[in-house]
Design a protein around this nucleic acid. Structure first.
Lengths: 232, 232
DNA sequence: CCAAAAGTGTTTTTCCTACACCCATGT
DNA sequence: ACATGGGTGTAGGAAAAACACTTTTGG
């Protein structure tokens, strides 16, 4: 995995050099997780967790590059993930090996869209955002913090959360998704009223059976596109 | 002015090269304006309007670079302007002369903070956003459009508009500022109720005299920092 | 005294919040 | 029959929207 990280930098380049980094979120077992990898850059970083990323090639856009490194460093098929540009980090000393400016992306994927190997819970794979043990390589703590804040604010006024949900889901599952990201409890009745008034969901003729209780109606988002509506 | 534009690119660089561009807004005579410059890059662009910008030096951050080009290309003192990063544009063909990735910034300055020469209304200086004649060099039309959208949405839920207002202003002036950016009419009474409930302004002991009507109370923003509050 | 912009209150409607019980199913 | 989560309604308060007249100044 680290072999494909070609941040082998010459110092004293004529200009700043460009990289991409990606914060990939998913929700597993009602808990928001981020996909990290192991960074090995002695003497600076020895087996430290970090975000997937690498240098942007001359013939690819920042987003293409981000998708490529997502695939190369985590094995996750990039077409499964929804992506939004986050911010460009350009502090002069953010990479100890030279001048690297990073375009950071936030990526979202529904947990159920991942294959078995993509779900892999190795040492440095999916970390729960509830665990407060982040001490990431480079300035990746800062990038992760920004990504989390951006996600939290964007699910309030857009339908962005759709990109973390499976194709079909129950209202309780949707509510739990909001709660896990926002770290708040929502009122079940008010939440349902709000969502149904917005008209962003389509009720399906199926129900989720199999639980040891009353089956729940299934819904899906009526539009695939993320749109701006005041959700919460 | 164009002499300091050192976008003299080698093709086939090993990596993408980084530039900064800035969309500087101000409000003059109740109308939102943007500061453009003349771009001369034969054979691609001959005396076309464009955004101030240029290559990022190896030892400066993107924001520093943006401030430097603002000064070099428009003569405007960069410490007068408030700046926020907008987006990074990385389309492979966005610059016909080679691979240039641009970090775009939005900058805001109160019109009254500008010196006489900075206000200069030359051929390519301050353009009113009401004039629909933008046909800018590079992908600068796209950047400008994004900046305008960002400005419009950010003044709704932050106190960002403070960075376009003079130190002291009347409530009508503030309302006109919102109206010129949002292109809507606001109800005077509801606007004043909303603003005063938010408590973001401080009433000054002075009034604006000199008009041919009743003098208006003067206000200033109580905090210098842009904060997040639901304004409209 | 007239023109011009400043300033101010009330009513209606919509939205948000708080809150508790019955329902359908599996075991 | 019981345990489990699914599903629903109402009342009170806050915020938003609609709407028109009086006040203060300069000319």
């Amino acid at each position: 995995m680290e072999k494909s990280d070609n941040r082998g930098l010459k110092k004293n380049l004529r200009f700043a050099v460009l990289a991409s980094d990606v914060v990939l979120f998913s929700i597993n077992e009602e808990s928001l997780c981020v996909r990290l990898i192991s960074v090995n850059r002695p003497p600076y970083f020895v087996n430290k967790p970090g975000l997937p990323g690498g240098l942007i090639h001359p013939q690819e856009t920042a987003e293409k590059s981000t998708r490529r490194y997502l695939k190369e460093k985590t094995g996750i098929s990039p077409q499964k993930a929804y992506m939004e540009q986050l911010y460009t980090f350009s502090a002069v000393d953010r990479d100890p090996r030279g001048r690297v400016v990073a375009v950071a992306y936030m990526a979202l994927v529904p947990w159920n869209a991942l294959s078995g190997s993509e779900k892999n819970k190795n040492e440095y794979s999916w970390w729960s955002m509830a665990d407060k043990t982040h001490a990431l390589a480079y300035d990746h703590d800062k990038i992760l913090e920004l990504a989390l804040n951006r996600l939290r604010s964007r699910i309030r006024y857009t339908t962005l959360i759709s990109k973390l949900m499976p194709e079909e889901f129950t209202l309780t599952e949707l509510e739990k998704a909001y709660e896990s990201i926002l770290k708040t409890d929502l009122d079940k009745r008010n939440f349902r009223k709000k969502i149904s008034k917005l008209g962003i969901l389509k009720e399906l003729p199926r129900k989720r059976a199999g639980g040891r209780s009353r089956p729940a109606k299934l819904y899906k988002f009526s539009k695939n596109k993320v749109s701006e509506v005041e959700v919460l």
